[in-house]
Design a protein around this nucleic acid. Sequence first.
DNA 1: CATTCTTTAAGT
DNA 2: ACTTAATC
Length: 652
Amino acid sequence: MADSVDRPASPSKGKGKLKDFSSEFDDLDPVVTYRHIFSPTIGPKHPLRVVALCDCNAFYANCEQVRLGIDPEKPLVVAQWGMLIAVNYPAREFGISRMDKPHEAVKRCKDLIVVHVATYAEGELEPKYHEKPDAKTHKISLDLYRRECIKVVNTYKESLIGGEIEKASIDESFIDFSIPVRDELLRRFPHLKDVPLDAPQGIDTPLPSPPSSVEWPENGNLVPIDPSKFDPSDKTLTTEQVIEAEKDLIPTWHDVCLSIAAELMSRMRKAVFERLGYYTTAGIGRNKFLAKLAASYRKRNTQNILRNSAIPGFLKPMPFQKIRNLGGKLGKALAEEFDAATVGDLLSVDLDEMQRKFGESAIWVYEVLRGIDRSEVKEKPAINKSMLASKNLPNPLSSTAEGPHWIKMLTSELAIRLHEARELTPGLWPKTISLHICEGWSDRKSKQAPFPSPRTVTIDLVLGEAMKLWNEMCKEGWRKGMKITHMGVSFHGITWAEEGQRAIETFLMAAPSRPVLTKDRARSVSVGVRDTSVEPARDVDIDDDSSYSFTCPRCKKEVSVPRKTLAECRNVSGENGDLASELQGNALAALKQEHEDFHFAQDLMRENRPIITNNTASGSGSPKRPVKKQKKGGQASEPAGIAKFFIQKGKT
DNA sequence: CATTCTTTAAGT
DNA sequence: ACTTAATC
């Protein structure tokens, strides 16, 4: 009850007063002007912003069902050791839930298909669907789901022109439809493009009235404005019924935008289903957290539209712990502090009080409770920044000698996954490696170290680095009676290697089998420097500061790698005769290739795929690499596939 | 209602 | 570098 007098006035209207409910959500029908329509960007405060969250339903189960070519209406579950990690919707009809054990589930449904997740057996280089996987000896592989997830996101991209997509988790993506929707809006209502000559406030004049009714797509649900008019347990509530009950309603321009987004979303979900066979559910609303909540309104192969006018009725009875970021400690703290469970319960807490108790987070919470969320849909790099292989140990390790077995298992998987990632994006490399263990129930320890940078991934390399960490850990000793119940190895800071570094590698790989060029010999060799075609060759002086360089037509920057660095990397050689031209050709070709690869990787990381002009379903889901390098050495740079990969073992 | 495995971000 | 928290 501290006085709020000594605090500056809060921006909230009803501050300190008894709340008038209509003012809790006071921005639901903002004025939209021509200026809004013309705005080149549509940020979090724009009144016509439209965001969707689309997630795959029972994704792992759906993946296995598709992989096995099973009828999607057959009940199917995915098991991981003694538990279920995915239950498809037909199986849920039998009352099976993720908390059930596989054997319990089978009791509920005689014909239930139980698929165990793929596992690595000891020493295996790829995961398999083993007959009888054993938690004591095998290691789970979630790779199938990771790969399928990429296909889903790529399909979204191909079927959407010009929107932003953020992959939020393995089976969820946020989509910002604002720009494509605005473009379509102008196509359908071209009169919005012209500010009337007699408009009183020019470009700041409010838009004319929207059409008197909105065509909501058939295949989705409208969250009702007044849920009390309906039986909340009625899962069959249709859009028609909602529209019928809201006959008198005057739609807004934002409603029109939502309906357009719904069409686009529907098209994207259809593409995913037709191409990949995955069912999705989407939520569509004015911002991310509402889109996410709306997605959970009705599930399985559908989409739910949350109009601004429906926000209060939807949000007030909502347990606030369902809101993203309020599911954990913060949510619990709020519940305890204010003895509240629903959003409605917290609306009477004013901003000052909230700030006193929750400091920084208060404004975010305060706004979210009122349906406001300014967070943006931001494209995340397509490449993961970290990679973890971990394992709970059913028989805890009780001696240091048992460590290496599991470390080998975990590092093998990591090496394979890194190698796989590099097939798509050559040059990816982790900055650090770390080893993490749990002793007993809650004693955790971790060690990390910089990861070295040879150019090929081998299991032995990763194993060796992890073993160093393990040995360090062992040296520090264990609590009395060592009991390791969990172990994990991970890569962090996985990024595209530095350009110069990569250029050198490419360069060296281009000439792998030639006699070694010593520094002395290199001094006597002639190499052209700036421009291969124009500048005459001149003597190499290893100590000079000149570079191989060219100007990139795309970014207009001069790209170079110091000649010195290349020379010192040794192995640069050839017969004395045409060595000069060969060297400069190799170096420049490598550098150019490297630079193209750099752009390629950047595009890939930002997921800037070339814009598809028509919706002609192109078969390939992944971007094309730039023109392949013509290698003088005639040697494949990277071994393809796991078989070859293993041959690399033992080499530096 | 608890469990295995992931990934990311942020704090100390 | 190492820990904690949050999400699926």
